[in-house]
């Protein structure tokens, strides 16, 4: 193909957008509306999931070890020889916990650190006055953070099977609630995304198809005077892709501006919620939204025009 022919077809694609101004505008508006809805829903769902995920990350399991004079002995139960761990064994257990797939982080809290946290919270700043010695002596513990809250039961079972572990503190309800919420969000968002995608594909595809169908006489003229399928199709495909691109750019720009505004507004107005409401940064949102919107807008513009022109090529 000649370079001049290539440039001609590209130029014709661009000119067609202008020539069929109202159709182009309607197509861009349809694509924009579909992708705006899709983007808006994605932003809400992504942030909601992020909030749940942040809450999950805060869920921890606390592991306590046997020690001389602990509540077991108070209850009249004697410790076995191996039950009271050495410092080395506690360290070993810490490493074993860290190596588990369910675990995202492990924090060792010595009995002194525990008392330094617990004392002021319950007895005020002068907590040491009433307790010259650490009442939590021997209460060394691990605070274990989960990578996936739904795996908590498996981890707890394993921890409880370690002979040196006296007690595992965990909240079954928090874990199951968060895990359930996460699952519901995943299924609902998947369902809505699939429906929105299907509606977008249908609407965008039909808009492009309709615009080409009203120009089928133009296609037949081209074919009668000896145009190849490529020559007929190329300007329509370029037009379809450009309309798709414009239809994609507009909602992305609106979502960008709107999202930044909402982030600033919430940060300024609801400072006390900032610890709980962890919004995703715009870069994380666009990391998914830009390629998907481009595939939807430009991809359907391309496929829609390609297949619709083909229907009218048999002249």
């Amino acid at each position: 193909m000649r370079i001049s022919t290539l440039f001609y077809t590209i130029r014709q694609g661009f000119k067609s957008i202008w020539r069929n101004f109202w159709f182009s505008l309607a197509s861009v508006a349809t694509i924009s509306a579909c992708l705006f809805l899709f983007g808006l829903f994605y932003v809400v769902i992504a942030n909601f999931q992020n909030i749940v995920k942040t809450a999950e990350e805060g869920v921890s399991v606390t592991v306590f070890f046997h020690s001389a004079g602990d509540e077991c002995e108070l209850k009249g139960l004697e410790h076995d020889e191996n039950q009271i761990p050495t410092d080395q064994r506690i360290e070993e257990i810490g490493k074993l916990i860290q190596a588990r797939a369910e675990v995202s982080d492990v924090k060792y809290i010595s009995d002194d650190e525990a008392w330094d946290t617990f004392g002021p919270a319950y007895f005020g700043e002068n907590y040491r006055e009433g307790f010259p010695e650490n009442p939590l002596e021997g209460w060394d513990s691990y605070e274990v953070y989960l990578s996936d809250v739904s795996l908590q039961p498996a981890l707890v079972n394993w921890l409880q099977s370690i002979p040196q572990v006296r007690k595992v503190n965990y909240s079954e309800m928090t874990a199951s609630t968060l895990s359930g919420a996460n699952m519901i969000i995943a299924y609902v968002s998947l369902g809505i995304i699939v429906i929105l995608l299907a509606v977008s594909v249908f609407l965008i595809g039909n808009t492009v198809a309709m615009g080409i169908s009203i120009r089928k006489e133009e296609i037949s003229i081209m074919k009668y005077i000896g145009a190849t399928d490529f020559f007929v199709r190329a300007p329509f495909v370029i037009e379809g892709m450009m309309i798709g691109l414009m239809g994609t750019a507009a909602p992305l720009a609106i979502i960008y501006v709107l999202y930044q505004y909402i982030l600033d507004y919430v940060a300024g107005r609801f400072t006390m919620l900032s610890g709980f409401l962890q919004f995703l940064p715009i870069s994380d949102i666009f990391h998914f939204l830009v390629p998907v919107s481009l595939v939807l807008g430009v991809g359907i513009g391309f496929l829609g025009s390609f297949t619709t022109v083909r229907k009218h090529l048999h002249v």
Binding site: E217, E218, S220, I221, K223, Y224, I225, G226, A227, T228, D229, F231
Partner: peptide, 21 residues
Amino acid sequence: HRQIPKFRRNLGVVFQDFRLL
């Protein structure tokens, strides 16, 4: 099918309704 365009270039066609762009 792909040879039809080249074949049609040997023919000039005029229609009643002109069929202009």
